[in-house]
Design a protein around this nucleic acid. Structure first.
Lengths: 176, 176
DNA sequence: TATTTAATTGGAATCATTCTAAATAAGTTG
DNA sequence: CAACTTATTTAGAATGATTCCAATTAAATA
């Protein structure tokens, strides 16, 4: 989604050396459409270059993040995801299944820049705009769960299905 | 920063029981001004209520997050931070020292809502707007580092300081 | 080419978070 | 109120992503 050169130049400009390994990480990030985790980056590279080390992946991602060239998107502490899309956009993040979807819309960052430097001397580099809520699938799942719960409370309302109780009697909260 | 009642009501409405432990977590979140980590929440409560368990803290925070009542802010994978401020605002996140500062400014979420539901059936609950960059202190530190590096490259330019080389010869990248 | 410093490596170590099974509390029904 | 069902809490063990380490290799520079 990003130009590999943009990422590599960010490294060069900041005085980091451009090695083969870093080049591969940048290429991977440029190629991918999604919001990969460090492990996905590793997996995507190691199959063609089995000698690369996990530590190097983490190092490179950390450097790129500290430069603001890629942006971390956190949700539900399972894994870290990186946003590699440099174009202004908004992430739709599902609170339940943690899926991240890009939504093309811009945000008037330019207008804020001057204010920030005025107020606290903050030097903006990039931004992250996420809307948190429920994706369509999870809305449906939620409805089904609530219905289920209700049905469990009112077993008599149902014609011929006494066995239903035992079957779906999972722990309700946390559908993950 | 939030009303404890708002958080408790969120739990109640979603069908969760309001226990003493959950009440304490909500109170803590309401009281705090910053962006606490789970451990900080735990530490802040355990001193008065030594019987509370870490697992309960995590459970409660996870539930509140899945409800969108509090918002996770990720930076540099060390710790998870939670944003407990329900008022619209922007977080200034330093890419270097990971400090998070609130910046009072609103974001025209309302205008986006309808679009989102139209496009992907996404049901928005809350939002997170972060500007990533460098705080004033880290800008200064960065300048100093660059100067240092330069001085190390050009030792002859300096009058009387040959020892400087060995002294500060740390690993340059990663000032953390 | 020699020298210096940065980057890579793989495996061990760390540590936040989750999981588990047992105990307890909350809510509900008769 | 007593019996029952289900949610919640708990302590400690287990997990697993990420970082750290010392040794090696590669880049850059003169």
């Amino acid at each position: 989604m990003a130009q590999p050169d943009v990422l590599l130049n960010a490294l060069r400009q900041a005085g980091y050396r451009v090695t083969d390994q870093r080049r591969r990480v940048c290429e991977y990030l440029a190629r991918t459409q999604g919001h990969p985790t460090p492990y996905q980056v590793y997996a995507g590279i190691v199959e063609k270059h089995p000698d690369i080390s996990r530590a190097t992946i983490y190092n490179t991602l950390n450097v790129l993040r500290e430069l603001g060239a890629i942006v971390e998107i956190g949700m539900g502490s399972d894994h870290t995801h990186y946003d590699t899309n440099p174009a202004p956009h908004i992430n739709l993040v599902c609170l339940r299944c943690h899926t991240i979807t890009d939504f093309p819309a811009s945000f008037p960052m330019e207008s804020l820049g001057p204010m920030l430097t005025q107020v606290g001397g903050f030097q903006p580099v990039t931004a992250r705009v996420d809307i948190l809520g429920f994706c369509r699938d999870c809305q449906a799942r939620k409805r089904a769960e609530i219905q289920d719960a209700w049905r469990r409370q009112h077993p008599h309302e149902i014609a011929n299905d006494e066995s239903a109780n035992d079957e779906h009697a999972g722990n309700l909260p946390n559908g993950e």
